[in-house]
Nucleic acid binder design. Structure first.
Lengths: 152, 152
DNA sequence: AAAAATACCATGATATCCCATAAATACCCA
DNA sequence: TGGGTATTTATGGGATATCATGGTATTTTT
């Protein structure tokens, strides 16, 4: 299976269009769909996105819930209500909806960040801040680890 | 199978007409019917709606209940008594009945919210309140989910 | 006849398609 | 290996189609 890797910075034009990085695009196209599935990230000011496999994963998750439970009502509102299947146009671009733009505080540039099974879309500055934080955490963790595991 | 996803805000005009979001409309039309099936949401101040598959589902649900039970009486009153099949006009609009308008406390704008198999129609402010609540609940429940669903 | 429902038409905004261009990348062959 | 050519890719713009929405006319209902 192909993974989403690396990161790419692209511009949003006046009509709101962004090119999906071609590497990512070709993965999305693999299952034949012309859509990019996406939704606001649960714990970051970013957009989570992926292809058919990601959306199927989420649909399956919903299917397992009791149809008439509060749990399902809340989840389906928060997930289905906020997720979108963006059409990929003939030039490989999408138009990100206002709601998602706002959630991720995006202006006229975005960074696509590969996360393996899915990828995220960030406002560039926010992403570099997030990355720094993450790296800091990793270093701290490593200090803890290195006491037990020399040479790592 | 096509699912109802995302949300759309539309206006109600002086004659009481609302456009069904075209994405939703095309799903409704798939089973050939020119109708939108709807009824007052059982546990929210909103309208539940969908196509033929939803109405069939509800019929099936009723069939499974003991014919002479209170449960069936109650449900058939709550659902069938108040459910309607709204004609979709040539421009893709419907007229929502007074009873449903009142149940959902709707004025001159509504939000259509995709929930997968069906969708809901909300008064915008009420929906944003409900959404906040739903997101809060989802975050609380999230630890449970993440153990089973990595990467989500 | 009055009121409601339905069909039909008009318009601005937006999305989609199609083409152009420049930069980046891949490709090829001496 | 290097240097040049072909392809791909990101991005912009104009033309076209679609959509939401308002309005008018016609039909149906009561």
């Amino acid at each position: 299976m192909q993974l989403f890797l690396s990161k790419f910075k692209n511009k949003i034009d006046q009509k709101g269009r962004v090119s999906i990085p071609s590497q990512f695009r070709s993965i999305l196209f693999q299952d034949g769909s012309q859509k990019m599935f996406c939704y606001p990230s649960l714990d970051a000011e970013a957009i989570d996105a992926g292809g058919d496999s990601l959306s199927r994963e989420i649909y399956a998750l919903m299917d397992n819930l009791d149809p008439y439970s509060d749990e399902k009502d809340f989840l389906s509102t928060a997930l289905f209500g906020l997720s979108e299947e963006l059409r990929i146009d003939s030039d490989g671009r999408v138009i990100i909806s206002d709601a998602l733009i706002q959630h991720a505080q995006i202006n006229d540039e975005v960074i696509f960040v590969g996360l393996g099974q899915k990828f995220q879309i960030w406002e560039p500055n926010r992403f570099s801040n997030y990355l720094q934080e993450a790296q800091k955490k990793v270093r701290e963790q490593r200090l803890l680890l290195s006491k037990k595991n020399k040479g790592f």
